[in-house]
């Protein structure tokens, strides 16, 4: 049972990086990709380009970011003792990560709630800054976990690992934008490239996971609690998978009644 829950935690973390990774990457590259689209002669202003890009990821974000909420819940429920130790060692990093996350989300939820270019441009900037904060703080946090939580996580190695994470997530975000905004003929190739960058995006978390695995196994909650958790949770996990698959079936280019490009469907974000 301990192994099963370790596998669930690993799957949730890997799923988070593979899925939410492209939202973060796209957010980081929002100004750059908008400029690139403008230079390539796409119709519309630069703000229109940003709107298209955000609309491309919008239907996936809620279903993607929730993987990290589940990671945090699993840490609390299955590894309560380790949870405190982990957060104690990573205190300022976790504060930065959560604050960046909230600001990124606020950018998404608020950007279209008022008219006027300045309002939307402001929240687009918040979205971009929050995405960078997320990527960099993830890198710092993971580097710290690999090294057994040293006192000062924001050192040179931490920041370098932050840049590595930022780079792979940016590549993933770019591949996602290309796939989602491409015409029907190119989606096959774009999809293969997206799968490749997804594999790249989970690499930075795979190493810390492997390092932390023995310690996680040692600190699993009592078997009584684990059994209760399993009885309540495991039967629901297939429904979680089905719901995620449903999201992808609904919003994959070429499917649905409206049309192919994400840009044509009015977006709430």
């Amino acid at each position: 049972m301990e192994i099963i829950w370790l596998a669930i935690l690993a799957a949730l973390l890997i799923g988070y990086f593979a899925l939410e990774g492209f939202d973060i990457g796209l957010g980081m590259l929002l100004p750059a990709l908008a400029r690139a689209r403008e230079r390539a002669g796409e119709p519309g202003t630069r703000q229109d380009q940003r709107d298209h890009l955000v609309a491309a990821m919008a239907p996936f974000v809620l279903a993607n970011e929730v993987w990290l909420v589940a990671v945090a819940g699993t840490l609390l429920g299955v590894y309560p003792v380790l949870d405190g130790r982990l957060f104690d060692g990573l205190y300022p990093v976790v504060v930065l990560l959560v604050t960046s996350w909230i600001l990124r989300d606020a950018g998404l939820w608020f950007r279209r709630r008022m008219d006027g270019g300045a309002w939307r441009a402001f929240w687009d900037a918040v979205l971009c800054a929050g995405s960078w904060g997320l990527a960099l703080s993830w890198g710092v946090a993971l580097a710290s976990v690999v090294r057994g939580l040293p006192g000062q996580p924001f050192d040179l190695a931490g920041l370098l690992y932050g840049l590595v994470v930022a780079a792979v997530l940016a590549a993933h975000g770019r591949a996602f934008a290309a796939w989602r905004l491409s015409g029907p003929r190119e989606t096959g190739r774009g999809g293969r490239r997206l799968a490749l960058t997804a594999a790249l995006a989970v690499l930075p978390v795979a190493v810390p996971l492997a390092v932390a695995a023995p310690s996680l196994l040692d600190h699993t909650v009592s078997s009584g609690t684990l059994n209760v958790l399993s009885i309540i949770t495991l039967p629901v996990l297939p429904i979680l998978v089905v719901a995620q698959v449903w999201v992808w079936r609904t919003f994959t280019p070429g499917r649905g009644v409206i049309g192919t490009g994400a840009a044509r469907v009015p977006s709430f974000f």
């Binding site: 809620l62 949870d83 719901a243």
Partner: peptide
Amino acid sequence: GDVFGAPLAMETLVAFFLESTFLGLWI
């Protein structure tokens, strides 16, 4: 944590995960 963490873990895995996914589908 042996007792208190379990309902919080269930909240995220059984409830909120689905709530957020279905809300995205709805919106």
